[in-house]
Design a protein around this nucleic acid. Structure first.
Lengths: 342, 342
DNA sequence: GCGGTCGATGATAACGTTTTCCCCACCCGA
DNA sequence: TCGGGTGGGGAAAACGTTATCATCGACCGC
């Protein structure tokens, strides 16, 4: 309120320089190590920095140097298991490379919502972007992303399908493996409760279908659930009424938990009457009774690999090879051989 | 490589101005709406912007205007249920206010790891910070955060304990409520499998203790688990051997799932022999058999309230009132009256 | 002892935007 | 017709840092 200083302006490089009795660029050199500085001057500068509690202004730094240290993650959600763990993997990689990570969730898959989101992301000084391709919103974001910004797609596909860098978990292979495993137990076919449709089918569903097809098994209609356990429960109720179902592959562990519960509530024995398998291997599923057979997907690793890919992109590598991890089947107690239904 | 242009420099305001035949500030005015511009000029400018695909440079913008639109979340994790949902709530609020959110995870609670993290966060042009106080790392981060940056603490406390703005879930009340409920069923006391220690005890544990104390019940030793279901399982095995336990409150749903499974595996009936209660109300817990009684905590709402608090702080409000939500007890089938243990 | 290289430092430009200040043309009322 | 307000727009300063270039001394080899 007085004439001189209002809210005690944050100290800047010039303040440090004056106190240390050196020039502004010298202070900068101490901070960035871009050029050697004599030990004595360095000490004076550091002392001055500590004294006034100086912190570099990131905006100014980025503006002039053009170096960007922000990686933005675009995603349709952050709370679900896969999203959250992928995000953690990315954050961990970024931390190691001393980069920052921003997260923007897309409200819906409406075209204008997507472009609005992208605009908001690209106004920031981002070095690159990682899009989580787990749902329609992610898919739409990839389409709408300008080709000029370094972009990595993290998702569940099996091969690169466009001009970007990809880090993937081969969900298709996972779906195939678990379906084949169920068939090998003697099931004539495997029914499938999928998550929300992505427009095109998800890798999990594709793998399931491929395995049935190559085994010459009948391909039942896909049952579409939301990601909620409740929704799985509702389908489980339906399934319990049918006599033709002996094996169910669910699009996620949460759905499987619901299906499992519904079956047991209806007096269906698992796995004696019906086998149930999930997808993801969330920590709790081995505590279900019976412990859930599922497909383990290492999302944390997926996040780490996406960040690696982006780092290479930023380092100037032209063609970053697509990195694909294969999920692994975890056999527990919810699946077993076919028996005569009591 | 040629003499003129290397990688086709990104278009800047000057380019737009030249094409539209106006001055640089005029383009800025169109973009920010800081001053009225004639309709005709505005149209020319917009056309030019679209034509060359201009995007404002956020760094330059922040540097000169001093307006910051970045909210940074500091957290010990992002993957666990509470963290992930709180983060989503924050992201949602930020999106509505068209601000950006950054996320930084602290590797450990080591003092230098914490200050390193904070340094990294504060180099960015942050408007404010939200610290997730769910673990030691978060606690340490709050201590080390300079008082000059607008900070909101999001956590599980019951009242403000320092000079910051707080958004809380009153875990203490939740712990008290569920414990009292169990006592009201006739249990002489309630045992407690807590999550990792936070140094000081967590609100959940405090509430449990307070309820026992005020009921004059014996206060058993706390059993400390990790957040892993497996760890809960191990404690469940121990508990099954004991004859004096009739009710167990767990520090999280995942721990409860483990305890539950161990008890059932050992032939202990739930809730007939032992009642089990969890904490959080993750979606899957109603699918456990028996469905888990637990304390519901709305983390998404916590995130939204933290962002609100920060927004007010940034709007210049001096004293932002602490916002406290009370968790609600969800009674399902895993808890019941005491019976003679068979 | 002298030209040349090197190491340390300072002066100045540059980054891309917003802000401030000023000018000009126009309109209105007296 | 003239003065004062007003609304649109341009010129230049400012933001805080790094990059570029110049300077100055010391040191080295011949």
């Amino acid at each position: 309120m007085a004439t001189t200083s209002r809210t005690k302006r944050a100290p800047v490089l010039g303040d440090v320089a004056r106190i240390a009795g050196v020039s502004v660029p010298t202070v900068s050199r101490v901070l960035t190590g871009s050029k050697p500085v004599s030990a004595e001057v360095e000490q004076r500068v550091r002392r001055a920095i500590d004294k006034i509690g100086y912190r570099p202004n990131g905006a100014a730094r980025m503006l002039v140097s053009g170096r960007r240290s922000l990686v933005s993650v675009i995603s349709g959600s952050t709370a679900s298991y896969g999203y959250a763990n992928t995000l953690e993997g990315i954050a961990h990689g970024a931390r190691t490379a001393s980069m920052d990570v921003g997260i923007t969730v897309i409200d819906s898959a409406e075209p204008d919502a997507v472009t609005a989101t992208i605009d908001q992301v690209l106004v920031q000084p981002v070095a690159g972007v990682i899009v989580l391709e787990f749902d329609r919103a992610g898919l739409a974001a990839i389409e709408a992303m300008p080709s000029t910004v370094p972009t990595v797609v993290a998702g569940g596909g099996s091969r690169r399908t466009g001009p970007r860098a990809y880090a993937l978990i081969d969900e298709r292979a996972g779906g195939r493996e678990v379906t084949s495993y169920l068939l090998s137990l003697g099931h004539k076919t495997v029914h499938h409760v999928a998550g929300p449709t992505m427009g095109k089918h998800s890798g999990r569903t594709e793998g399931w279908r491929a395995a049935l097809k190559s085994a010459g098994a009948k391909i039942p209609d896909v049952m579409h659930a939301t990601w909620e356990p409740r929704s799985g429960y509702d389908w489980g109720k339906q399934i319990a009424k049918r006599r033709d179902v002996t094996a169910v592959l669910c699009g996620s562990d949460d759905i499987a938990a619901g299906v499992l519960r519904a079956l047991l509530d209806c007096g269906v024995r698992v796995p004696e009457d019906i086998s149930v398998a999930g997808f993801d291997d969330q920590p709790y599923v081995e505590m279900l009774r019976p412990a859930l057979t599922t497909v383990r997907q290492d999302f944390h690793d997926l996040g780490a690999r996406s960040f690696d890919a982006l780092a290479r992109l930023l380092a100037g590598v032209r063609e970053v090879p697509t990195s694909v991890a294969t999920p692994s089947l975890v056999i527990r107690d919810s699946t077993g051989p076919v028996r005569a239904r009591r």
